[in-house]
Amino acid sequence: MSRILVVGASGTVGSELSRLLAAEGETVVRATSRAPVAADQVALDLVTGAGLQAAFQGVDRAFFLAPPGHADQEALLAPLIDAAAAHRLQQVVLMTAMGANADENAPLRKAERRLEASGLAYNILRPNWFMQNFNSVWLHGIQTAGQIFLPVGDAKGSFIDARDIAAVAARLLTSQGFAGRAFDLTGPRALDHAEAAAILSRATGRTIGFTDITPEAMLQGLLGAGLPADYAAFLVQILGYFKAGAAERTTDAVQQVTGRAPRTFEQYAKDYRTSWA
């Protein structure tokens, strides 16, 4: 069995990945930016670099992602990749985002390139927009107005359940045969936000709709919620890519790696229905 460092272990993907790895008998080291409160946690602040070297002690493999709230993801990921190379880890799985490889100058793509050149055995996961956004970052509008407010028009996205991302990462960290490959991860079909709202309505028994707003209104809402200006602008920018159709494509990557189809939006809505009660 391996000792696996999970960065972002308290997040949507990392918490599920940690659970899956532990269930398979792996030793999980859960990185946290807060003071550790459990024996399997280690303090790691990606912004300051505090705890970086200590987090890698005795680690064989690792899962990396950049935490939300930061537009320059490469600045956070580069020290992790360099530390992994210095400690000669057996494998690194890096999560970026679908479309990250479309622009060689994008911070996430620079991080991918750094990992590719590191000499490490690696995989790169590029998931599409999470289904779980509907019960987290888009939740306020649903709770207060019964609406999903986004500047995306009728564009479609092949939303993916974060649990499926974690399942792919767990498989890659505990098996052979996929080294050096990147996977674009999507759900089984593309939906527009009106269709997603209708599915949520059926699952919850309440009326949930979708309202298309301007990018300017989205930006002001994000700033009003306290997001850093550069990160708010980044979110509006990538929502623009969504509106342009960049999120509609589907892949069979979840099936390839895990041997089963990704969860449907209907299954997600059923599983999380209490979130919108």
Rank of each mutant, 00 (worst) to 15 (best):
D45Q: 01
T48V: 02
T48F: 08
A54D: 13
V59E: 12
V59K: 11
D60A: 04
A62Y: 02
A62Q: 10
F64D: 06
L65T: 10
L65N: 08
G69P: 07
G69M: 06
H70D: 01
A71S: 14
A71L: 03
D72W: 05
E74W: 11
A75W: 00
A83Q: 14
A85K: 12
A85S: 11
A86T: 06
R88N: 10
Q90P: 10
V93P: 10
L94N: 06
N101E: 15
E104N: 14
N105T: 14
N105I: 11
P107R: 07
L108A: 14
A111I: 09
R113D: 14
R113S: 13
R113A: 13
R113I: 11
R114G: 09
L115A: 06
E116L: 02
S118I: 08
G119Q: 09
G119H: 04
L120G: 00
A121F: 03
N123R: 05
I124W: 11
W129R: 08
W129A: 09
F134V: 04
S136A: 13
W138Q: 12
H140T: 13
G146F: 05
I148E: 09
F149S: 11
P151L: 07
P151K: 13
V152C: 10
K156W: 03
G157Q: 04
D161C: 12
V168R: 09
A169F: 12
A170M: 10
L172K: 11
L172P: 13
